[in-house]
Design a binder for these strands. Structure first.
Length: 412
RNA sequence: GUGGAUAUAGCGCAGUUGGUUAGCGUGCCAGGUUGUGGCCCUGGAGGCCGUGGGUUCGAGUCCCACUAUUCACCCCA
């Protein structure tokens, strides 16, 4: 017996409708905001993620599916969607198109993690990318799209946390101030934070260790160190969200785990699926395109975990049961009737109406049972009697009532 | 990577202090006279009791290891 690989999931036919449901809402919402679909490869050169996502991140350090292909190239299954889009943008010269470029994707991403509730090795994201505008309106557009999508999907209670981590200049000043504040207390912090102290001090704020949290509780806040431009930008983003009536909370401790973020960062968090509550994470990444080899191009976007979204919707009873069923099940009796049944089914399908007939060789009773199980709306019974009289019996499976119609009317 | 829990039929579960051919519910297939579903009844298929060792006359049951699953930490969607 060969089992499914750790941290992956099968999508069974009976639950396909759930995926169609949220993917449909994603596509429609994206379209309403003028975002078009973009598709990039499932794997890229490893170098892209090293440069794009950042070598100090957990994702790059320990979570990538990396292997050598037969040509000896280092290949990585995409651990997130943004870097690939940035590469695609640069490689295809999309900066020549009218700006902004607004694109979305629905794609699977891969991370070598230890699976738990809401965390998989392959999961699916609905992501959005907006390139070519550094205006706060772009941030607002992207955040409100995420908010709108979640609301349409039925998740109207996820909390939006936002923060600004400034531009590289503000961050340098802030990092210096943070290091000075921590100063002598560094030895009391966890091993990981001591490492962060040198590599990426900002992430110390993200630490969940009690001791570390105590030390950083009264640390200076990055928002106090923002330069004039970054401060104005953050203020405008908030004003824009207020204007649209999108509720949010400013949370100075969210800093995100990917190195490419600048200025605005945000998360939508749900409390209904246990520890892995972040359903959507995103922000601005003005330096990414440059890091990947393109001309400086400001950008904002988000990634939204579809498995987690479904988990929340299911846990809170917001996902309706499937309503799909066939319109007609045609139950033949005898060889002559089988041929007529095939003709009826073909005619129905030709005119866009779903129809099925027996392909197993079951008795009439068994066919009725099957039709019931698949929730067929109508069953058409055809036997020698019906053929002789040129009519068929139609049974409404809900009411149980039967009526007779001319065979010719079913064959149109 | 670190901790805890679990592993018996497709799914959900029983299985006594170790003792014959391992059960129940549900689902699946077929029947309950001549051509009709849902309820009821009957029958059938389906299990190397996660894998490998050990203890024992005897292991689904006890011990060890491994593997897988799962929850939490870390991190993230």
């Amino acid at each position: 017996m060969i089992n499914i690989p750790k941290g992956t999931r099968d999508m069974l036919p009976d639950e396909a409708y759930k995926w169609h449901y949220i993917e449909d809402i994603a596509r429609k919402t994206a379209a309403l905001y003028g975002f078009k679909e973009i598709r990039t490869p499932m794997f890229e050169h490893t170098e892209l993620f090293l440069r794009g996502v950042g070598e100090t991140t957990d994702i790059v350090n320990k979570e990538m599916y990396t292997f050598l292909d037969k040509g000896g190239r280092s290949i990585t299954l995409r651990p997130e969607g943004t870097a690939g889009v940035a590469r695609c943008f640069v490689e295809n010269g999309l900066q020549q198109n009218p700006m902004p470029m607004k694109a979305y994707y629905i794609a699977s991403v891969f991370r070598y993690e230890k699976p738990q509730n809401g965390r998989l090795r392959e999961h699916h994201q609905f992501g959005v990318e907006c390139y070519g505008s550094e205006a706060p309106e772009a941030d607002v557009e992207v955040i409100s799209l995420a908010h709108d999508f979640l609301r349409r999907a039925g998740l109207d209670f996820a909390e939006l946390n936002i923060n600004s981590i400034g531009c590289p200049e503000c961050r340098a000043r802030y990092n210096a101030a943070l290091k000075e504040y921590i100063g002598q207390n560094l030895h009391a912090m966890c091993a990981q934070c001591r490492e962060r102290f040198d590599k990426n001090p900002l992430r110390i704020l993200d630490c969940k260790e009690e001791e570390c949290k105590k030390i950083t509780a009264n640390a200076p806040k990055i928002t106090e160190f923002l330069c004039e431009d970054c401060k104005a930008h953050f203020d405008s983003v908030r004003a824009g969200l207020d204007e649209l009536g999108v509720p949010y909370k400013v949370n100075p401790s969210i800093v995100r785990g990917l190195d490419y973020y600048t200025r605005t960062v945000f998360e939508f968090v749900s409390t209904d699926i246990g520890a892995q509550g972040t359903v959507c994470g995103g922000g601005r990444y003005d330096r990414l395109v440059e890091q990947v080899g393109g001309k400086p191009t400001p950008a904002v976007g988000f990634g939204l975990g579809l498995e987690r979204l479904l988990l929340v919707l299911e846990n809170t009873g917001r996902l309706a049961a499937s309503e799909s069923s066939v319109e007609f099940y045609v139950a033949p009796m005898g060889d002559a009737a089988k041929k007529v049944a095939r003709q009826i089914v073909a005619a129905k399908r030709r005119s866009g109406v779903s129809a099925e007939t027996d392909i197993v060789g079951r008795s009439l009773k068994a066919q009725m049972k099957y039709a019931d199980r698949i929730r067929a709306k109508y069953v058409v019974v055809v036997g020698d009697d019906e053929i002789a009289r040129d009519e068929a019996e139609i049974k409404d499976m809900q009411s149980g009532e039967t009526s007779r119609v001319a065979l010719s009317s079913l064959l149109k």
